[in-house]
């Protein structure tokens, strides 16, 4: 990484931080990790690799709904981006199989706040 000039900074700022519309974000701050997000993150990564899915698994910070950790936000093209909460391995598997592969939202685990 070379030192940025102001123009180069502008250029990066105009890029999209979400490189594609297919991504999975796992909340990996202390609240999430304490609830088990670390294992869920690893699990999702493994599943994506195993099934050769074209979707990036990333970590992100705490978005505030700490009571519902582990939180996993999923965006798949053609579906609205939603956040799943209290995700365990079972729910994570459903996310992969139902949401990512079958393109259907998983019931009973979505946490949708007002903003």
């Amino acid at each position: 990484m070379a030192k940025l000039t102001p123009d180069e900074l502008e250029k990066i700022s105009k890029s999209n931080h979400e490189k594609s519309s297919n991504w999975i974000k796992v909340g990996m701050s202390t609240c999430g990790i304490a609830a088990g997000a670390g294992e869920i993150f690893d699990f999702l990564l493994e599943e994506v690799k195993k099934r050769n899915l074209q979707i990036e698994v990333k970590k992100c910070g705490c978005q505030g709904n700490c009571y519902a950790e582990p939180l996993v936000e999923v965006s798949v093209e053609g579906l609205p981006a939603v956040t799943y909460g209290k995700v365990n391995k079972e729910v994570a598997t459903k996310i992969i199989e139902k949401h990512v592969i079958a393109k259907m939202l998983v019931n009973d685990y979505i946490y949708d706040s007002l903003t």
């Binding site: 700022s13 992100c60 705490c62 978005q63």
Partner: peptide, 15 residues
């Protein structure tokens, strides 16, 4: 928070 990877400066700049 919850949108970007905190360890990736490019994502921060992109926002």
């Amino acid at each position: 928070c919850g949108k970007i990877d905190p360890e990736n400066i490019n994502e921060y700049i992109a926002c």
